[in-house]
């Protein structure tokens, strides 16, 4: 992104020679960093592969890039890979939407009724700092060994922080902006829809970026404990039957999925800025 931008700028006509030299220097530095990143990645892969082949790393425990690729190809060709990935992504998006919808709604409600916010404040804080993995076994007992548990677990990871952050952002909107709406004859509803919500769009988007990651974390935790499918299930199952290739492959795919989800929201963010 930055590289392309610099490249474009340095080729633009009508800039001074000095500026062009400056841009070329920036470009060279950017190129160096990119090359180093790839070198780091490739040498990591190479060391791993060679280590496994030479016997310096036990491939049975550590797997290897080649074996990961092979199992990925075979699971992709019979469709199981997409099935597990699809389940995990579905659960992640589903929990993400519940977290956002419920979080915004609850924050609005707390903003609307300040005394309610004051009453619930200590509980929200405790629930937010509680490690949500501690709750997972309860969810299994209550909801059963199924997708419901996974989604509830994932929602519980992100929702309390979302409510607290959004509520804090809502009440820190400038007092005078609220006064402005009142001078124009507006009600509390107008204050909410004309000032509070629109002025917090950037903060809602940055919370979304955090939450898509947290939802994935929650879903994987849920799948560890209560699943018959999904990448989390594949990881647990693979480790139980000593198929470390599956485990490693799932982790690699999780990395790619996490990066993809983050990228998706960054694109959405750029769209709203325009």
């Amino acid at each position: 992104m930055k590289y392309k931008m610099l490249l474009g700028m340095s080729k633009e006509p009508g800039i001074s020679e000095e500026q062009r030299t400056f841009l070329r220097d920036c470009l060279a530095k950017e190129r160096f960093i990119r090359i180093c990143r790839w070198l780091f990645f490739l040498s990591f892969l190479a060391l791993w592969e060679i280590g496994a082949r030479v016997g310096f790393l036990n491939p049975f425990i550590f797997s290897s890039p080649g074996r990961i690729l092979k199992s990925a190809v075979s699971m992709a060709s019979d469709g199981t890979l997409f099935y597990h990935l699809g389940i995990t992504l579905f659960e992640t998006f589903f929990s993400f939407f519940i977290v956002m919808a419920f979080g915004i709604l609850a924050a609005v409600l707390l903003w609307w009724k300040e005394s309610l916010a004051r009453i619930l404040e200590p509980y929200l804080i405790v629930l937010n700092s509680l490690p949500k993995t501690a709750l997972a076994p309860i969810f299994i007992v209550w909801l059963g060994n199924n997708m419901k548990t996974i989604i509830v677990a994932a929602v519980s990871v992100a929702v309390f922080g979302t409510i607290i952050t959004l509520y804090t952002d809502f009440i820190s909107v400038e007092e005078d902006k609220i006064k402005l709406i009142r001078t124009l004859g507006g009600t509390r509803k107008d204050i909410l829809f004309k000032v509070i919500l629109p002025s917090n769009i950037p903060s809602i988007i940055s919370i979304m970026k955090v939450n898509i990651g947290l939802s994935l974390v929650g879903v994987i935790i849920g799948e560890f404990l209560a699943a018959k499918a999904g990448l989390g299930y594949l990881i647990i199952y693979g480790s139980q039957v000593f198929k470390l290739d599956w485990v490693m492959m799932s982790i690699v795919i999780l990395c790619i999925a996490a990066a993809g989800l983050y990228q998706l929201l960054s694109i959405a963010e750029r769209k709203t800025e325009r």
Binding site: E174, D176, K177, K179, L180, I181, T183, L184, G185, G186, D190, K194, V195, P198, S199, I201
Partner: peptide, 26 residues
């Protein structure tokens, strides 16, 4: 009509939409 000490134009609205704010609300 009350014009506050500061303009408080909302920066996520265009000038036109800012001016229409009172009309919208009422």
């Amino acid at each position: 009509g009350y014009m506050l000490q500061k303009d408080h134009l909302l920066d996520w609205r265009t000038t036109y939409r800012n001016l229409a704010l009172g009309l919208e609300i009422q």
